[in-house]
Each structure stands twice: as structure tokens, then as C-alpha cells.
Design a binder for these strands. Sequence first.
DNA 1: GCCGTTTTCGGCCCGACTGTTTTCAGTCG
Length: 571
Amino acid sequence: MSTRKQVVEILNQVADLLEIKGVDYKPRAYRRAAREIDSLTEDLTDIYEEGRLEDIPSVGKNTAEKIAEILETEKLEYYEELKKEIPIDPELLKVRNLGPKKVKKIWDELDLTSLAELEEALKSGKIREIKGFGPKSEENILKGLKIVKESQGKSHLSEVLPEARRIKEGLVDSSLFDKVSFAGSLRRRKYEVGDVDILATAGDRDKAMDHYTTLDGVEEVLSKGETKSSVRIKTGLRVDLRIVDSASFGSALQYFTGSQEHNVRLRQLAISKGYKLNEYGLYAEEAEEKVAGAIEEEMYQKLDLSWIPPELREDRGEIQAAGEGELPGLIEGDDVMGDLHCHSARSSDSHIPLDVLVREARKRNYSYLAVTDHAEISGIVGGLTDDRVAEHVDQIESANSAVEELDLLAGAEVNIQPDGTLDLGDGSLKELDVVIAGVHSHFDRSRAEMTERTVRAMENPNVDIIAHPTGRKIGERGSFDLDWGKIFARAEETGTALEINASPARTDLEDKLIKRAKEEEVKLTIGTDSHRVNHLDYMELGLNLARRGWCEKANVLNTLPLSDLRAWLAG
DNA sequence: GCCGTTTTCGGCCCGACTGTTTTCAGTCG
């Protein structure tokens, strides 16, 4: 575990324990600090060594000392003491319907500290006997416990989006609703989505809710009311529908889109300007006069902010930027001119014949597409070798001359060896239009070695793009640790682009690193890493990532017309 | 514990819902 993750984990657990203890405000302070540290892209150790810990927002003298202690000793005495005082597994707090107060209560009453003990106490009926609990609590905690045990219950955006769209369509098509919009993390296009939030207005709410809870695909109705109903659909996904007055649609949309951190910040701003902000509207303080509510844009406008695209609402400086008129003009789907990372059937793990790639690219109105087949990794046969590159280039060129309005680029995805060399020779790489280099093996090296390895690959003048820079595979292996200061600096100096790999299994780079890359003036590309026909659709996911990373059209190379792209690739 | 175009001390977002209570505490988003 990286030291940064370790610090974040300990600070969050300190917050958990303090919350159980019943301390006010401190837990929030620790959590805020943890969140800031988690979103750092700079190396925490560097910050510490340069004595800049207190420059991190929400980190004061006290927390800085604690971070220093963790970095030096990999432990925190304060945390160890707390654990002795309150020997409770913080996992308990993840159980829905079980917060710090109730956790403390069951510990006080039954001396139970773990999920296993909780389950036992529930089953033997001990929980319901505690004052303040009852049969309903028992039932709800059991439900919450089940969800915790069945993994953390988050799904990838790519799985959720089609289901959510189907539900939304089912609402729109019924004509029972006037406005229907996604809200929540789905609207912000986070790559991990817990549940789907839909917001709507409707004339006849009862009829509308009846329709919703009986939609095709609904497995279970979790709750049903006039303003809010929740269902679980066949894939296990939970979908919440809220029906609001159209006079409050904008404020509700703003509110339910979040993020929570964004909303807190926005409310603070509202207060400082003499307003009160809630999901029903924006109110002038004394008069209780509603000044905005029906339209989301107006909510921001009245607070002297430009409208903030949902993807940016993460409290990463967007409110300040909106106040100063400095929000980025985010990249749009139509800006993308082509896909720079696709595999044809030549790659032994891809099943897309070249003519199918061509067909799909044309269908999407791309003006170019790079066919970047794998170099042969030891043990996997059939990939590109120095002997086969000429044939690959010939094949692409002849396919190219057969199609109009689309240019195929001959490329390769080569492997970065542990020492930073590549598995195709420079002579071969020179023949190719696009060279993507990526780490595909030997992930267990140190931060310094991984950084050096990647930097060396960037220093090869034939390398255009670093593929999936952190190497992570979601649910399989984490990101490897890199010295991002060095990576971004060398990328910028060598004119190497970093890839936003749109494949849901990778989702790499992530938004916060994209944002930092942009700030460091590093060029980015969006690639789908397609190995199957339907993977070309991942472009939308890559676009979401880029937008969440504050990218404008100018930051992403595959928005360039072909001639400019070629000039960049050649440079 | 942090922070300051209301403050270096005194605040720290806000409302709905639920289940348990006899008027509200706890949890959630």
C-alpha cells in the first residue's frame, strides 16, 4: 500500500472512531483532510520532506504532525490509543441504517464490535431488545448487513448506463412525465455508480409512480410513495425516482446531482451572500422570498456563478472557477475525430477483423482510426514482431486505399520492459504512424523503477503515447505508484501523450490525474483499447473521464484533424 | 480540528424520512 493510501485510511478510521465516541466536528475535520490527501497527485512524501504539509487544504498543525508520524513510523499512536479505547471494527459503520450512535449503543449494551458478532446478535433477537431499537431496526440492519457482505455494491458506469437509459426511456415514453433527468453520480458520470437517481415532474403522481414500479425489468419495489419510490431491477441495481414540483425542478436537480461536497460548498457560498439554499429553491434570507428554483442554471446564476457542468461538481475548485468565469469549455462528443487505440484480429486477443474496424469507424463518422496491434509478448503468439511490422503496414495501407473519408493509421501497442526498453526495434517503430507504449508485465517493481521505466519509454522518440499509464485493472490489481511530477514533466518535454484508456476494465488515467496532466500542459489521447466490436462504444466513457478531468478540446489530440495529428505524431 | 470579503474565536449545510417514541434522535443523501 502506498504511504498516501495508508495515511488516508488511518485518518478516516480516526474519524470513524471519534464519531462513535460522539466527538463533534473533529471527525469531519479528519475526513476532510483525508479526502484532500486522497486527491493529491503529488507525492505525499515529497510534500512532507519539503515541509509543505500544512499547505494542503484542511490540514492544520495537528493533522500535519499526525501525517508526519504515520510517514515516519507507519503508525499513529493517537489512533492506536483510540482503538484500545473503542475496539470497534469501522466496517460496522458501512452497514446501512447503522450510524455512529447506534454502533456505540450496541457496543455499550452488548459489547459487540464486529460484523460477525452483529449478525449473531441480530439473529438471536438481542438487537431488538435494546432501547431505541425495535423489530423494524432489526430488519433494516439485517438488510444493510447483507449488502455489505455482498461486496460494496458499486457498479461500473458502463454497466449501469444502458440499464438506466432503458428505465428513463420507459418513463419518457409513457407520457405520464413532463421532465425526466438523471441526477446523482450517474449524472456526474462517475465511473463507479452505487445506484441510479432519476428526477421527474408529473401531473398525476400516483399514476406516474404506478407506472414506474411496474416497469419492465423491475424485480422488487423497495419503497413507494408520492414523491419517492425505489426499485431494484433484475441486474441488482437500485433505481430511485423522485417526483418534484416543476417550480423546484432546477433546485432539486442541483441538489440531487451533488456531489455532497459540492453542495456543502455551494450552500456556504449561498449563506455568505445572504441566501438560503435547499432542494426547493434559493431563498432571500429574511423575506423568505424564492429567487430561483425551476431552472438549474438560475440557481448558479443568482449566486454569481456560471452553470457548472455536472462532471465538474466534485469540489475540486469548480465553484471558484465558476465565480471567476474560468470554467473550462469541456470537450464534446463531436470533437472526437477518431480512435487512437484499437486492435484488429492480428492481435491474438482481438476478434475484430480489419474490415469490421473500418465499418465501425465510418459508422461513427471518424476521420481516422489507428490500428494498434499488440507486439508479441513472450508466451502469446501471433502479435507483431520486427519481422511482421512491414506486412502490418502494407496491410493497413492497402485497406486504406480501399476506403474513402477514413484514414487508417498503422500502429502498434508495444510493451515497456522492466528496464524501459521496448519489444520492437526502433527500425520497426519508425515504419509505424502511431506507437503506443504500455506496461503489461512486471508490475511489482518499486515506484522509482516504474517511474524510470515509463520515463525511458517516453524518451524514445518513436513513442507517441503511453497507454493506460497506471496499469490498473479494476477489481484485479491497483495502480502502480509513479512519481507523477516526473512523469508529467518528461511527457511535456518529450512531447509524449498520456492515454485516457476508456476501457471499463482500466479507466486509466482517472479524472484527478487527467486534471493535473492538463494543468502541466501534457497532451492526452482518448483510446478505447477495443478488442471486440462493441468496445468502440467505450469512446463515450473516455469522453466522460476527460470531461471529469476538466479537459477541453485542445487538451486531447484525437480532436485534431488528420493533418495536424500527423504533424504532431511526426514531431 | 480547521478556518476567516461577516470572525484569530466561534462557528462548522440542510431537510426528509424512519422508527421509536410520546416530542424526537439517528441516519441518509
